[in-house]
């Protein structure tokens, strides 16, 4: 599975560099592994991209250990200036984020980093990842408008500098109608939607869940909806993840 591109890569292929990827998950099935996969891909030796990671959910050590098992050393990437890790977990910094100025400050940091990177090396591709939008909402004290503004600003970055923006959020939070605006807006912004769900039949040891990938960019380029929707199942391991079509466990 490692050497060739897997189903997830295939489904996300032809995504232009300046697009938005939205990962949705739920309590039963975490979608964080898609984030890990994209982290690894953008930090791989073949690509020369810069990764800006905004961590709201887990500390650096957590990601470091996971990515090390996937074969990517985050500490080294940090030293090589290919990874910028913004730790937004600690409360003293979250105070700073609370309210409008906090998210502003965060955006300015990101904006500055993106600008610097695009100035120094013209061809460098930039990836921005935010690991939990729902926690960002908490940091903004429930002011969804601020979060939306933030995302819109980041979205302009993607068009201006050709960044890839990857955000993770939890879908089941927004099942109630009145809170759904932010999810709908994010889904509208997203060029690729990745949805992680548990199996409808319940837990199984060899199938950990299913992924639905909706690739809007595919459909644009071809003018038809071919390859638009991908649906497959996955099984996670420490060092990799397996993706397979339902009923064809490889």
């Amino acid at each position: 599975m490692e050497r060739t591109s897997n189903l997830l890569d295939e489904a996300m292929a032809e995504t232009p560099n300046n697009s938005v990827v939205l990962i949705e998950d739920c309590v039963e099935t975490s979608g964080a592994f898609v984030l890990h996969h994209l982290m690894k891909r953008s930090l791989s030796p073949q690509s020369s991209s810069l990764l800006i990671f905004v961590a709201f959910a887990h500390p650096f050590s957590h990601y470091d250990r996971i990515l090390r098992k996937l074969g990517c050393n985050l500490v080294m990437q940090k030293d090589n200036k290919r990874l910028l890790f913004f730790d937004m977990l600690m409360p003293q910094r979250s105070d700073e984020v609370a309210g409008k100025t906090g998210l502003h400050a965060l955006y300015h940091k990101i904006h500055k980093a993106v600008e610097m990177a695009s100035l120094s090396e013209s061809n460098k591709h930039i990836v921005i990842m935010i690991d939990d939008i729902s926690v960002m909402e908490i940091a903004a004290n429930g002011c969804t408008d601020d979060v939306l503004d933030f995302l819109h600003y980041c979205h302009t970055l993607t068009t201006q500098f050709g960044c890839l923006l990857v955000v993770l959020t939890h879908e089941d939070i927004y099942s109630v109608a009145d809170r759904a605006t932010i999810l709908l807006q994010m889904e509208y912004l997203g060029d690729v939607l990745v949805k992680a769900e548990p199996l409808p039949t319940g837990l199984a040891t060899d199938v950990h869940g299913q992924l639905t990938v909706l690739n809007k960019s595919n459909c644009n380029s071809l003018g038809s909806s071919r390859n638009k929707m991908h649906n497959f199942q996955f099984r996670l391991k420490e060092s990799s993840a397996e993706y397979f079509y339902p009923g064809s466990l490889s």
């Binding site: 309590v27 890990h36 050590s61 957590h62 996971i66 199984a204 996670l236 420490e238 993840a241």
Partner: peptide
């Protein structure tokens, strides 16, 4: 048991029964 803490790993715990 709805969720089991997963630190430093991406592999979920699948329990025999919840």
């Amino acid at each position: 048991v709805h969720k089991v803490a997963r630190f430093n790993t991406q592999v979920p715990v699948i329990l025999d029964a919840t």
